[in-house]
């Protein structure tokens, strides 16, 4: 993959030169016979020029990248405040409750979940936050909030059970 990526970068340079003469032309009009990939590479390249700071941040993220099977993963294409998470072996049990509790977080603009395909044991969660927090932080808070809610409900259930039993034995 890395090799392929480098090759594309080279192509992107080539495209960039072509761009000197055809500044704002769309990829389809650049040169006859351009493939989709090349076209997108060019666009990516222009993007880099315009947002160097953003690119540096993303490079840092790549260094942490680890190819291990893990329960939660951020899907590529996510940013700090707008991210999609992929949960393995989770379903509606967690998804809907998590969606609700994250939506309750005032720093969160949007949260939704989906099970993309019923025969894949995966659950995707989308979080978009305001600038006050990050998507990952909102997810961590959401998980912690449900855990605390569980504590409260478990406690309440057990005290009511004891009360009920006491009343029955009278």
């Amino acid at each position: 993959m890395a090799g392929k990526t480098r090759a594309r970068a080279a192509e992107a340079e080539e495209v960039d030169q072509a761009d000197i003469t055809m500044e704002d032309a769309p990829p389809s009009a650049q040169k006859p016979g351009y493939s989709q990939e090349e076209g997108s590479a060019m666009q990516e390249d222009e993007g880099e020029e315009n947002d160097v700071a953003g690119e540096e941040e993303e490079e840092e993220e790549e260094e942490e990248e680890e190819e291990e099977p893990q329960r939660v993963r951020i899907l590529p294409g996510s940013t700090e405040t707008a991210a999609s998470f992929e949960f393995l072996k989770e379903g509606h049990t967690l998804g809907n409750a998590l969606r609700y509790i994250i939506m309750k977080n005032p720093g969160v603009e949007f949260c939704a979940y989906t099970i993309p395909h019923p025969s894949e044991d995966k659950m995707n969660l989308r979080i978009q936050t305001y600038d006050t927090t990050t998507a990952t932080a909102a997810l961590a808070k959401g998980l912690q909030d449900i855990e605390d809610l569980c504590d409260v409900v478990a406690d309440e259930f057990w005290t009511q059970r004891d009360k009920f039993n006491a009343a029955q034995n009278k």
Partner: peptide, 24 residues
């Protein structure tokens, strides 16, 4: 792509589609 700047960056920074040699 249009006169507004083709596939250039939006206010949200570079688009992660395609594969530049960078972080995406």
């Amino acid at each position: 792509a249009s006169a507004w700047g083709g596939g250039a960056a939006t206010a949200y920074g570079t688009t992660p589609y395609g594969n530049s040699g960078g972080g995406w």
